[in-house]
Amino acid sequence: MHELSLMTNLLDAAIAAADGAKVHALRIRVGPLSGVVVEALRFAFDALTPGTPAAGARLDVEETAPAFHCPRCRTDYAAPVGSYLCPNCGAADGELRGGHELELVSIEVPDHV
């Protein structure tokens, strides 16, 4: 359940970025190699937000796929976790270039006109 401490970090970053304003929504990006479970993040979010400026906020989750670059045939490809072969040449030594993400992308705050 390290999702609780990681969600705390994301929430702290959101509240800091809102600078005192209410947070309407958080957009986070989660890679399959980040080692976290999205459902557990949502559970942590619901547990942590009440009483904060993000109370009642929406949590938008972008899930990415592992991104690879094949050093042999120079193909860039996405592959599901557990199967990393290059779809073009079958090489198994693709360089991992994405899929570890666990980050707060943006927040939505009230637009005071």
């Binding site: 970025a17 666990l102 980050e103 992308v105 943006s106 927040i107």
Partner: peptide, 16 residues
């Protein structure tokens, strides 16, 4: 819907 604006943050949960 309440008028909102989006603030880009781009911060990793594992930054610290």
């Amino acid at each position: 819907p309440p008028p909102v604006r989006t603030i880009a943050v781009q911060k990793s949960a594992l930054a610290l």
